[in-house]
Design a protein around this nucleic acid. Structure first.
Length: 150
DNA sequence: GCCAACGTTGGC
DNA sequence: GCCAACGTTGGC
């Protein structure tokens, strides 16, 4: 089983939204590297942190599980969607998503500022300078360590 | 294939 | 709102 970190802006879709929906498609990813990981590498049963980005307190806020492996992102083919991409088509889909299931909130948000203070987390892709990828793998040792911070 | 211009992300 | 870092686009 592998571990991941998925970013989302809480004003768009945060941990409370996922808790309400329980299962949701991780739609709208429009970056090829992130797409490739969702399409090719994520497996059912993998777990992921939900990270709140672009907000007052950027932080890991919850845990989720991959419940459906990569499949074409339907919002790419919906002209009404803000994620619409005319260069994608159902016959030749360009963008993929997975389905995630809510597991739980962390007992408290673990902020980016706090994560940066732990040498044990050196190498965590989230902390790399200039990193903007919304989907990144998390090493098991890092995963376990972060959960001890709760 | 190069690379300048432009757009986006996201912390601060 | 600023701006650094990065990705994408498109002319050549």
């Amino acid at each position: 089983m592998a571990y991941w970190l998925l970013k989302s802006e809480p004003s768009t879709f945060g941990i409370d939204d996922l808790a309400a929906k329980q299962v949701d498609g991780w739609e709208g990813v429009r970056n090829y590297q992130a797409r490739n990981m969702m399409r090719d590498q994520m497996r059912r049963g993998d777990q992921a942190f939900l990270y709140h980005s672009n907000c007052a307190e950027p932080a890991i806020t919850g845990l989720m599980e991959i419940v459906r492996e990569g499949y074409p992102d339907p919002t790419a083919h919906d002209p009404e969607s803000k994620y619409y991409d005319p260069k994608s088509s159902p016959a030749q889909p360009r963008w993929f998503q997975v389905d995630v299931r809510y597991l739980r909130h962390l007992s408290r948000p673990i902020t980016l500022r706090e994560l940066r203070q732990h040498q044990a987390l050196d190498g965590l892709l989230l902390l790399r300078r200039g990193n903007r990828l919304s989907v990144t793998p998390v090493e098991p040792a890092h995963w376990d360590y972060i959960l001890t911070l709760e």
